[in-house]
Design a protein around this nucleic acid. Structure first.
Lengths: 151, 151
DNA sequence: AAAAAACAGTTGCGATAGCAACCAAGTTCT
DNA sequence: AGAACTTGGTTGCTATCGCAACTGTTTTTT
């Protein structure tokens, strides 16, 4: 029985899908879906007031999805859009009070997921995992840029 | 400006999506999509003759998707299904000669992706990334089992 | 042996994702 | 100023994915 080396991408795929399911289950009660968490956490825990384009770039998500996800978040009153007074093409996205009310609860969902994933990791291993993952991400972004898909 | 610790799952999500796009582009010429590579590589590079359920379990993919992906692979003549003579519920999946013809080319797509992701990694870092990722996967699988979603 | 339960695979459904085409607002070029 | 181009966002399309409900086969229970 030949021992095949298991590929990085197989693990990443499975972790991604199971994590999405986990997130979906744990944010369902807020009436938002697993396609929206990325945007909401970015706005809540990093910075709001970004345009949709900036959000897309930061999160590496297609701008069409960004438009759709933000629409849903807006419908549920977690964010609102405001036209940039300097440039009427841009819509700047801000979180609502409702988002702030649930901020801590949201945060827990992601802290918990992180704990699940890195269970029994030493602090050094956690840090190493983070570093290696973000290097992989940078690598594939750099590759895409050589292919002319910079953005 | 507060320095936020970046989460594992954000990186994993982005890597997953970019990798899926990469794979999709590179296997398009074989008339198969990014939803099918996981099954085909498993059958080609590990073992065929598995049932759909076994494939689902190994790849951590819902059995409904397995059925659909295999249907497409069968339509394109990369695999065939054979009823298990001992148990008429089971369909065992085998790769075709057509698959074997392209085996090396397929392999390159995934080797190349692996190279892109782990660019500038030392051999130790590559190994560490693999180990940590599979531990994360095992962790979330174990968590799911505590939640009664063993399979 | 008949009924009930378990198992393997399929289908229906709704949500998410990327690409391409499009529209409206701003910028640049002549 | 007007034409051409760029930029930011939206919509249409198609593919993927997980869950739930279903069909047909096998096993277990009584």
């Amino acid at each position: 029985m030949k021992e095949k080396k298991k590929s990085l991408i197989k693990a990443i795929s499975a972790i991604y899908r199971y994590s999405q399911t986990y997130i979906g289950e744990n944010i369902k009660k807020y009436n938002i879906g697993k396609g929206q968490w990325n945007f909401l956490t970015q706005l809540l825990f990093n910075e709001d007031g970004l345009t949709q384009e900036e959000l897309s770039d930061t999160l590496h998500i297609d701008k069409a999805n960004t438009a759709r996800a933000l629409k849903l978040l807006e419908d549920e009153d977690y964010i609102y859009r405001q036209l940039d007074p300097k440039d009427a093409r841009k819509k700047r996205i801000y979180v609502t009070n409702k988002s702030r009310v649930f901020e801590e609860e949201f945060h827990c969902v992601f802290k918990d997921l992180n704990k699940i994933l890195s269970k029994d990791f030493t602090p050094e291993e956690k840090e190493m995992a983070r570093i290696l993952l973000y290097r992989m991400l940078d690598n594939i972004i750099a590759y895409r840029e050589t292919q002319g898909k910079g953005k």
